[in-house]
Design a protein around this nucleic acid. Structure first.
Length: 189
DNA sequence: GCTAGGCAGGAACCCCTCCTCCCCT
């Protein structure tokens, strides 16, 4: 069983009011990042991207104009994931609710998929800390992120994969099983 | 020109509700 580390960029924070504009993912097997096995796509949200989101993510209307719409992009992502376990940072509160809402809005038939939230890895490694943002995790792990573009799903997913593997090795040196809860989520069927 | 929604977890209190903070784009 592999892990699929993924990240979404969206037009805002509300799964009901906002839409996905980029999905990126990379596969991890037994604690090793399989960099060649990656997925990334811009997503055409069918609406204009707010200026502050373009400022924050660097993703413009021109980037998504010819991209697949949400249902197609999510179905492609779902095929890439297969039956493997998803991992996202704050996925429990952000990414997975976004995917569920996007499926519901597009009336896509759904299937069950397990997912973990890397915030729980951070909470397990640094139990006394209250800060578990991705930036806080990167700072504590002293990861060199100079080759990655932050707030672009492709960059963030590369960074997150490195962070997940590093925390995982600290908690379970053999990287046998992920030592955090696996929650029930959904992807398009 | 535009910057918001909702969960988790703690406090106070005894089972909920309220409150505050975190975290994501």
């Amino acid at each position: 069983m592999d892990l699929v580390i993924f990240d979404l960029e969206t037009t805002g924070l509300s799964p009901m009011a906002n839409d996905i504009i980029q999905i990126a993912a990379v596969r991890v097997r037994l604690g090793n990042i399989l960099r060649a096995e990656n997925f990334s796509t811009f997503v055409n949200p069918g609406c204009s991207i707010p200026a502050f989101i373009t400022c924050y993510t660097g993703i413009s209307n021109a980037d998504v104009r010819n991209a697949p719409k949400v249902p197609i992009a999510l179905q492609q992502f779902s095929r890439f994931v297969g039956e493997n376990t998803l991992v996202a940072h704050n996925g429990h509160r952000f990414d997975m609710p976004f995917i569920r809402a996007a499926c519901e809005k597009s009336r896509l038939p759904m299937r069950a998929i397990g997912y973990a939230d890397s915030i729980y890895l951070s909470k397990k490694v640094w139990q006394s800390s209250r800060r578990h943002s991705l930036d806080a995790v990167l700072e504590r792990l002293r990861l060199n992120i100079s080759g990655y573009k932050r707030h672009d799903a492709r960059g963030d997913v590369g960074i997150l994969a490195e962070a997940v593997v590093k925390m995982w090795r600290q908690l379970t040196p053999g990287c046998a099983a992920l030592p955090v809860p696996i929650f029930p989520g959904v992807l398009p069927r």
